[in-house]
Design a protein around this nucleic acid. Structure first.
Lengths: 222, 222
DNA sequence: TAAAAAAAAGGGATTTTTCCTGTTTTTTAT
DNA sequence: ATAAAAAACAGGAAAAATCCCTTTTTTTTA
């Protein structure tokens, strides 16, 4: 598959071999107007394969990947190659992820069960119009604005530092706060403080709420 | 792709269009010895498309699907078409799912990031030898036997009835047990009883443990 | 239908969690 | 070096969770 001179140059970043092959075969069907520069397993692999002399116009990006995930990869692209447009293709359809990606400036967000035809439309739109926002995305946006308001948008606002992470993980156990204090070599009262500030910041009212937040945001695995 | 007379007949059950296409193109590469009878979006779709006059030898089955998931689909196949061999191809790699599927009698379990070559090996093995168990599966099995022992294998043993489900879901909120009692039109003391019996059955020691169990086993969505 | 089992409810006590209002110590910034 | 900010720590108290053990009511089963 040698780069075609007058075509849309794209790259695929996804750790699932079979899925990439599926994309490749569909893109072949679309024809000469789209050519694939390279495929990468994850963000780091993408960094290696990006060649300044021959940059892709669009990168089809998965989110869940080892080493460097989609979020990190897009952040890196924004700094180093801000002209490359990113089109997310992911199974993850949570409002949180969609919004997070949109805030990072991606040009579109497709579900992995997208119809082949829509992929072509999306590539065309992103290339010629600069974006491809479906009703799915618009819906998420509107819902976020309507409900969550500015609460969840400021996800940077409640990032946890190392000790808070440690604490929230221990809170997801059956240890008492006294046990947790011992585990962290802190006074029980200090742990009390951690709890209270996290309750405030994360907008929860009990240890159960804290635990569910931790799971939801990946601080603990089940 | 018309069914080849002397080939392995297979069917694909997966709700992700692109992924199915990826599989299709790879199977085409494998050549004439494998032919695809049909593709289905989920278990129900599969039921419709199964033709008793021309049954597949092997079904490549995803787990997460709408309408009827992989577990249900395999259960149904065991009753109605026990001769069809099932090869799971799923992103889900949790010990729980692997063991659950093995208990249902599937002949192999592949990750979706399987190498193309391994897919051919797996199909060959399942067709000629009857199974394809990788080190991945063996590892899970050994680990289950070593650790969890018979605890998690008897997952049937701690199935929750409707009231217990309702309770465990409410316990994953920031309501007090008194609030939960009102919600369920029961005395707080009865709710106390639900908690205590669930603590015992599910082997947890606190409401946090209960909440995490609920999430892990899908009684509440995050 | 009587006995047995299961579900619902209660009394009462201990432990843990949660929430106040502070002080002391450490870190950061000017 | 010093003021300001953040982190660590405390006392005390109310609310909630947890754990005993017992009784009543309902349902199941022999």
């Amino acid at each position: 598959m040698t780069p075609h001179p007058n075509s849309i140059h794209i790259a695929l970043v996804d750790d699932h071999n079979l899925f990439r092959k599926g994309l490749v075969s569909l893109i072949d069907i679309i024809g000469d107007k789209v050519s694939i520069l390279f495929e990468a397993d994850n963000g780091l692999d993408m960094q290696k394969k990006l060649d300044s002399n021959q940059l892709p116009d669009i990168i089809l990006m998965d989110i869940n990947m080892p080493e460097m995930d989609g979020f990190e990869a897009v952040k890196w692209l924004n700094v180093h190659f801000p002209t490359i447009k990113v089109l997310v293709v992911s199974m993850i359809e949570s409002e949180e992820s969609v919004i997070k990606m949109l805030k990072l400036g991606v040009k579109g967000y497709l579900s992995k069960d997208v119809e082949p035809g829509e992929l072509e439309n999306a590539l065309d739109a992103v290339y010629h119009k600069g974006f491809y926002y479906t009703d799915f995305i618009t819906g998420k946006l509107v819902h976020t604005l309507t409900n969550g308001a500015e609460k969840d948008l400021f996800d940077e606002a409640h990032h946890l530092n190392e000790k808070e992470k440690k604490f929230i993980q221990l809170a997801c156990s059956e240890l008492t706060y006294n046990d947790i204090a011992k585990e962290m070599f802190l006074s029980p009262k200090t742990v009390d403080g951690y709890r209270n500030t996290l309750f405030e910041r994360l907008q929860v009212k009990s240890r159960v709420g804290l635990a569910l937040y931790a799971v939801k945001h990946g601080y603990v695995k089940l």
